[in-house]
Measured scan of single mutants.
Amino acid sequence: GKELVLALYDYQEKSPREVTMKKGDILTLLNSTNKDWWKVEVKATANDKTYERQGFVPAAYVKKL
């Protein structure tokens, strides 16, 4: 199945390749080969529509579930 990670801290994206997350968010882990930056998929809701974004977050800010 898919691997999930838990956001340990809030993170505000600093570039278009990154994604914003809030502490407590559960994210889908896409790639953890880089030890510093993990690629995740974030589900977000805006205007009653759910959309998914993929991007990088600092590996130290998340932990595998």
Rank of each mutant, 00 (worst) to 15 (best):
F56V: 06
K23L: 04
K2W: 11
K2E: 11
L6H: 04
V40D: 02
A59R: 10
Q54E: 08
A7Y: 01
Y9D: 06
A60W: 09
N47A: 11
K63I: 15
N34I: 05
D25W: 10
E13Y: 04
T28W: 13
Y9M: 11
G55D: 02
D36C: 14
V42A: 13
E13P: 15
K63P: 02
V42S: 14
L8Y: 03
T45M: 11
R53W: 06
R53T: 06
V62N: 01
L4W: 13
V62C: 14
K35Y: 07
K64R: 14
E41N: 07
T45H: 11
E13N: 07
L8N: 03
V40A: 00
M21D: 00
A60C: 14
G55W: 03
L6G: 02
K2H: 11
V42I: 13
L4R: 09
S32W: 11
K43T: 14
P58I: 04
K39T: 06
L27T: 01
A7K: 01
F56N: 04
Y11E: 03
K14Q: 13
E41V: 13
D36H: 14
L27W: 03
Y61G: 05
L27M: 13
T28Y: 12
N34E: 09
G24V: 01
S32Y: 09
V62F: 04
L6Q: 08
Y9R: 15
D25F: 04
T33N: 12
E41A: 14
K35H: 10
A44Y: 15
A44C: 15
Y11G: 00
V62L: 15
D48F: 08
K35T: 09
W38N: 00
A60F: 08
L8A: 03
Y11N: 01
E52I: 15
M21A: 02
N47R: 05
K63F: 09
S15H: 10
T50E: 14
M21W: 02
Y61H: 06
V19C: 07
W37A: 02
V40Y: 02
S15A: 07
K63R: 12
W38L: 03
T28S: 07
Y11A: 01
A44F: 15
G1V: 14
A59T: 05
Y61R: 05
P58G: 03
D25V: 04
